[in-house]
Deep mutational scan, measured.
Amino acid sequence: HSLRVHINGKDFEVHNADEHVIRALEELIRRGADADELKEFLERWKG
């Protein structure tokens, strides 16, 4: 899957995101994670 996440006016393109990554991202958003947390998660995932 390809996923586009809009954080703090920046678009993050997440390519080849598997279900696990997408679910983790949705969980963060549901918990009310702020932009920094989401960005950190995506950067860690992209490795």
Rank of each mutant, 00 (worst) to 15 (best):
I29E: 02
G9R: 00
D36G: 08
N16I: 06
A24Y: 09
V5D: 01
E13T: 07
L25M: 05
L25Q: 00
G9M: 01
K46T: 14
L28Y: 04
H20I: 11
D36H: 09
H6D: 03
V21K: 03
N16G: 11
I22C: 02
L42G: 01
V5G: 01
L25S: 00
E13V: 13
A33N: 04
K46C: 06
L25W: 04
R4T: 15
A33L: 09
N8P: 00
E13S: 04
R44G: 12
G32T: 03
E40M: 09
V14A: 02
E27Y: 04
A35F: 14
A35P: 09
G47E: 14
K39R: 12
D11W: 15
W45C: 09
A17G: 04
K46V: 14
S2V: 15
A24L: 10
D18P: 14
E40S: 11
E26I: 14
K39N: 13
D36V: 08
L42Q: 02
D36Q: 09
W45V: 12
I7Y: 03
D18Y: 03
E19F: 07
R4F: 04
L42C: 06
A35G: 09
R44C: 09
K39I: 14
N8G: 09
N8L: 04
K39F: 15
E19V: 12
R30S: 11
K46H: 14
A33K: 06
R31C: 06
E40D: 13
R31Y: 08
E26Q: 12
A35E: 09
S2R: 15
S2E: 15
D11P: 05
H20W: 11
G47K: 10
L3Y: 05
F12L: 03
R30C: 11
A35Y: 14
D36T: 09
E27R: 06
D36M: 06
W45F: 13
L38K: 01
F12P: 00
L3D: 15
H1E: 15
E27P: 01
F12V: 05
E43P: 03
A17P: 08
D18I: 03
V5F: 05
E40C: 07
N16L: 06
R23G: 07
K46P: 14
R44H: 12
I7W: 02
G47F: 05
I29T: 03
D11M: 13
A35R: 04
R44Q: 13
G9C: 01
E19N: 07
L3F: 12
L38E: 00
V5I: 13
N8V: 01
G32L: 05
A35V: 15
K39S: 13
W45S: 10
V5W: 02
A17D: 03
D34I: 05
H6A: 04
L25D: 00
R23N: 09
L3Q: 14
A33R: 04
G9Y: 00
L3S: 13
K10R: 10
